[in-house]
């Protein structure tokens, strides 16, 4: 899921500027799990905006905000509330924010910062395991992604900063290659440790990404 975090209220108020009435959009999927843009957070935001002298015309939690057609439909269902507002504040990831900005011709304010594609370790604890690099190497790396787990994304083994199996930039973190090495030893999983891995092919992930199923 997309891990997101609420922007500080001061930043949101600065972005709203002289827009006095606000329509708030939340997301029932990732932002709800991240407790950054679910029902509770949208309600709290509404209270905070009112305390800061803004008026809130209404709100909606969209299931899910990255779905552009659904966002259009849900907003049309609340057309009057949307029209009454000077701006919409979107408490969803960057994809969700842009579904809204594409659907409403008015000012759109981002309520969240989108951080990474994350796994859920336990409630409220998220970890990045995949960088969406377009060329999955997990079959060759014992199921552990060095592109993501190594801060330098090294494909050919640990850097010179690794010691005692720890990462040079975080003594608490296990080096990605130490994880791979240990996994190979303990589970007998296969990893390509001996052969040089060529540089990644970044032409596989052009920006902006597009995929159309045939």
């Amino acid at each position: 899921m997309i891990i997101s975090q609420q922007k500080p209220l001061a930043d949101i108020l600065a972005s709203l500027g002289d827009s006095n009435s606000v329509f708030i959009v939340g997301c029932a999927k990732c932002a709800t799990v991240c407790k950054s843009g679910g029902e509770e957070e949208v309600w709290q935001m509404q209270e905070a905006l009112i305390s800061s002298g803004k008026s809130v015309t209404g709100s909606v939690i969209i299931d899910e905000a990255c779905h552009m057609l659904r966002v259009g439909r849900d907003l049309r269902g609340r057309q009057q509330l949307v029209d009454d507002a000077d701006a919409s504040l979107v408490m969803a990831c960057g994809a969700g924010i842009q579904s809204v900005s594409a659907a409403i011709p008015k000012k759109t304010v981002a309520g969240l910062d989108s951080l990474f594609l994350g796994n859920i370790r336990r409630f409220g604890q998220f970890e990045q395991k995949c960088s969406l690099c377009g060329e999955c190497v997990l079959s060759e790396t014992a199921g552990i992604c060095p592109v993501t787990a190594c801060p330098k994304g090294l494909l050919n083994g640990p850097c010179g900063g690794m010691d005692e199996g720890r990462c040079e930039i975080d003594a608490e973190a296990e080096c990605a290659w130490a994880q791979i090495f240990t996994t190979v030893r303990e589970t007998g999983r296969i990893a390509n440790l001996a052969e040089s891995v060529p540089p990644k092919n970044y032409s596989k992930i052009p920006k902006p990404g597009k995929l159309k199923l045939k």
């Binding site: 330098k152 994304g153 050919n156 040079e168 930039i169």
Partner: peptide, 28 residues
Amino acid sequence: ALTGDHISFGDHKEAKSVFDLDSVQLLE
């Protein structure tokens, strides 16, 4: 041919690190 110390150790912590290649790929 070196990989390079991570950007977080230096005096431009907000810079983007590249690491398009690693030290083995640089030698290649």
